[in-house]
Design a protein around this nucleic acid. Structure first.
Length: 136
RNA sequence: CCAGUUGACCGGGUGACCGCGCUCCAGUGGGUAACUGCUGGAGGGAGGAAAGUCCGGGCUCCAUUGAAACACGGUGCCGGGUAACGUCCGGCGGGGGCGACCCCAGGGAAAGUGCCACAGAAAGCAAACCGCUUCGGUUUACCGGAGUAAGGGUGAAAGGGUGCGGUAAGAGCGCACCGCGGGCCGGGCAACCGGACCGGCACGGUAAACCCCACCGGGAGCAAGACCAAAUAGGGAUGACGCGGGGCUUGCCCCAGCCGGUUUCAAGGCCAGAUCAUCCGGGUUGGUUGCAUAAGGCGUCCUGGUAACAGGCGUCACAGAUGAAUGGUCGCCACGUAUCGCGUUUCGGCGCGGUGCCUUACAGAACCCGGCUUAUAGGUCAACUGGCAUU
RNA sequence: GCUGCCGUAGCUCAGUGGUAGAGCACCCCCUUGGUAAGGGGGAGGCCGACAGUUCAAUCCUGUCCGGCAGCA
């Protein structure tokens, strides 16, 4: 595990509701431990946000999921493309997944999100269901 | 040693690498502004329940809120402690346990009202279905009158219980004990306890039914509230108070009116729109403050008290996030659990070693305190109880 | 974070201290050549969970569990 050195790169943290709603319309990629949503924005540095729904578990479990995902993201921060926002929706599997697999999944999901064609992949992108309550 | 009761406490440790947010200090930038970015250093960073939001307070707003009555809500053996409490401590009464100990919304049912389904003769007034006894008629077992409430049956509950006497049969009709009621005496601050005496039984349950009594309580909540910045059309509708009166020294006073759950009184404020309430529409979804020195934590400490607790002394500076920090990964150790082997045994287990799994249970501060309730793997200590063995 | 409301048949809801109901849905029968509608009959519930008060609790009281609204 000592081979896993953190990649340096300036990452913005998404904090506002509108940013999450916008990202929900973008391209998606699913992994067992999380789901990723991405959209292009007018900002140099890539932005990352985390969200875990209340249905996933109680408060300590949700905190652990978010912290493990956050640690995995800092490991491969250089993989994020500038000018894009990413939202990771945490799932229960993130509690028990080995950490090395988590890191690999994050970079794979980034690649997958960018190979899919924007907009054409999700024609119903403006649907209101994206505004469901997904605060952690 | 085994089983148990009560109380108190802990609830992973350590090393390496990498990170997060806060405070202070130093340096350096940005913004119209409220404010804020970056670099370096130092410090500190979840709980016993942080939870549920069930009680009680602090604090803030409703301009302030004192007195009385009513309404509404709560509490409910007695005494104490507390800022306060439905919590806590001590005592009393009742119930459970061999015991240590545990549990109890535990005022009033002779102030009044209501209810007690079905069953049953009868459900609160006292009565009498089957009976029992006796008298009369008829006479095979039937009918009527009188007495009675022991026995049967119904029910959750049937107007004291047991025994002896007594009687036509019976009955507190009489007696003994128990229960119940009454005043008296003694102890106790009190709840209550004890004693002798009298009464001959009269008084069912339900107040987590209405109610009565005593005591307590104004409402809303940090998304309260205050400030800064930005933006918009300081918009519209409905309702309420209402376009007051008088005096004069012409900007003040008096009267009326309005302001609290309701009414009255008292102080105070407002008094004519820049008013208040509700609804609709529009803009913003930024920042600061409130915000952590407080009923604060700790102590083989001292004094008073059985105790809760109070007073004193000493000492410490100890989380402040807001898509929400307090962590992630790896190694070692400890603990737990499953399994295998060996040893031991009072056949319940215990000890040692190896391997796998879990890396812990319940669970994450959101203005802050005091409690309650609920969840919680495993472990430690103290006191006490019952049993067995030994001395 | 704070405040309020609600858990009864598969669904939508009544109900009240004394063995629980309506409408729709479901099953069977009648009607029709057949279906729908209509008529008749039937089944389906430990009234969210656990304690307490009461002779008796869906109802009264307390504590939990689950769900739904509102707030600057």
């Amino acid at each position: 595990m000592a081979a896993l050195a953190p990649a340096t790169g300036a990452l913005r943290r998404l904090k506002q509701r509108s940013q999450f709603v916008k990202a929900a319309r973008g391209n998606r990629a699913g992994r067992p431990a999380f789901g990723m949503q991405s959209v292009s924005v007018d900002d140099e540095a890539p932005g990352v946000g985390f969200t875990v729904t209340k249905k996933t578990g109680n408060s300590p479990e949700r905190n652990r999921i978010r912290r493990r995902l956050r640690a995995a993201v800092t490991m491969c921060a250089s993989d994020f493309v500038a000018g894009h926002d990413y939202v990771l929706v945490g799932r229960r599997e993130a509690l028990n997944e080995p950490f090395s697999r988590l890191v690999r999944d994050v970079s794979q999901a980034i690649a997958r999100v960018h190979t899919a064609k924007p907009n054409s992949a999700r024609p119903g992108a403006t649907r209101a269901k994206g505004e469901r309550n997904n605060r952690s």
